[in-house]
């Protein structure tokens, strides 16, 4: 079944890079943060495919979970500053 695993990896990699591009390019900060959470989420499935369940669980609980929550807590405190420095490009 290694071809199945290879195909899965490809789809996951494409999804992850797409999400990363959204995270960098999108003008709205909440969406950028959400996209970076999605990158972590997909990365954690990728870790599982790479036979690293420990890392997958850490990434799911910490990288995708707590980091995103921290970002949103901070974002709720800086309302009004989301668009700062976005005047170029």
């Amino acid at each position: 079944m290694s071809s199945l695993i290879n195909g899965m990896t490809l789809v996951l990699c494409v999804t992850m890079i797409g999400a990363a591009l959204v995270a960098i390019r999108d003008k709205r900060l909440p969406i950028a943060i959400l996209a970076s959470g999605l990158v972590s989420l997909i990365a954690s499935i990728l870790f599982l495919v790479l036979a690293a369940p420990d890392v997958a669980m850490t990434e799911a609980a910490i990288g995708s979970g707590l980091t995103t929550f921290l970002f949103f807590f901070v974002l709720a405190r800086v309302r009004g500053g989301e668009q700062d420095g976005a005047d170029h490009d």
Partner: peptide, 28 residues
Amino acid sequence: TNRNLLRMIVAFCIADTGVNIVLVAVGH
């Protein structure tokens, strides 16, 4: 390229994830 502090932190997190993926891939 970003000038917003929070955006820079988001980008940093993505690079961090990338480094982790490379490290795990080396062990596979």
